[in-house]
Design a protein around this nucleic acid. Sequence first.
DNA 1: AACTCATGGATAGCGACACTATCTACTTTG
DNA 2: CAAAGTAGATAGTGTCGCTATCCATGAGTT
Lengths: 213, 213
Amino acid sequence: MQISELSAVSGVSVASIKFYRREGLLPPGIATATNRATYADHHVRRLRLIRALIEVGELPIANVRAVLAAVDNESTTLHDAFGAVMHSLDPAPPADPSDSTADAEIIAVNEWLARRAWQVEPHAPAIRTLAQLLVAIRQFDFAMSITDFDEAADLAEQTAYGEVAYARAMTDRASAVATMLIGTVVIERVLVEIRRLALEAVSARLEAEVREP
Amino acid sequence: MQISELSAVSGVSVASIKFYRREGLLPPGIATATNRATYADHHVRRLRLIRALIEVGELPIANVRAVLAAVDNESTTLHDAFGAVMHSLDPAPPADPSDSTADAEIIAVNEWLARRAWQVEPHAPAIRTLAQLLVAIRQFDFAMSITDFDEAADLAEQTAYGEVAYARAMTDRASAVATMLIGTVVIERVLVEIRRLALEAVSARLEAEVREP
DNA sequence: AACTCATGGATAGCGACACTATCTACTTTG
DNA sequence: CAAAGTAGATAGTGTCGCTATCCATGAGTT
């Protein structure tokens, strides 16, 4: 398969494929001459993964590179490769130790995690992001704390078991990691869309009740 | 309150405030002279809302403007103002009728919505987005369909009732709309972060089981 | 009254990002 | 042998959310 066919099959323009190759996201094809190379099925799969991470996960190129490096490194455990994505999904805090506005919330979140026996990396960006979001909620006079999300957390945990086990059951490592990435990135978008539809539907119902009581 | 104080209180730079004013996101202050104007508390609240929509909701400026126009238009019902945000959150499809790749999924999603008695706008972008996400999931050989998300939908619906009712109970319209926007945008981010933490925790557990059986 | 300084308003520029276009040298294919 | 495709390199593009600079004006300060 030459580059033009790879482009046609994957739906990614030749120029973009060249760009990804240049950026180290896509391995080069096997050179058959100075100006000829052939690409295989794994290039198609890799392109799909790249597009999913960029389009659905909205990861910047640099983070996609980091994630794929973890995927490709055979000595990385499944869990660590997965951790690389988790780190990449939340924008890294600009390392501002003077910003202590969320400190109290960070403590609360950590206690909550401990209570649930959720062991995550102590410096997982999701912890800080979560704390900052809770601060934002407070700013808008919502009387909410992390414990109001216990039910959602229960369901998330329960669902996570199925997803992770499904991915880990795969025979080859590359598929397992890719499956986990997709599971994280795509399914969370699905859940968000469902929630939005639920809100719209409920809003419509309550609006209708007011208009035709 | 002058612009510099508004900047200090809100944490938004004077240049950015000028920018938002120029873009029609923030109403100008009351002019006390050719080169002087005073700002009030509602400017601070408006700035918080703008920042939340941009930073947390990641809405482009143009969509923020559309949302705020709906908020400001007193003749818009609460539900319609809310609909404006829903429309803005999902990137508008580039109006490509030749792209029929997701048609079957769109039908499936609509049937699912009907079964749940979720009445949403027929052209709600979330429907198309959801369909496209399901197509993406298929591409990665997941055997999943929309019905696999019934449990999540149940919880979303249940939670939505509380949120929407809470917002609608507010005395003034502006607060009610703002509350609904924040509820949509911020809380969904919280749920995403919780899900990510759940996945990481579960992944760690299953990894540990393999290493120390 | 003189001086400093903030403000409104306008215009131009910036930095990040994800490509995209163009060019050259070469090789394959018809 | 010519047309078309390819690798590799370099430069350019378009969008986005600001940010910087400038100017004229007028407010507060001395």
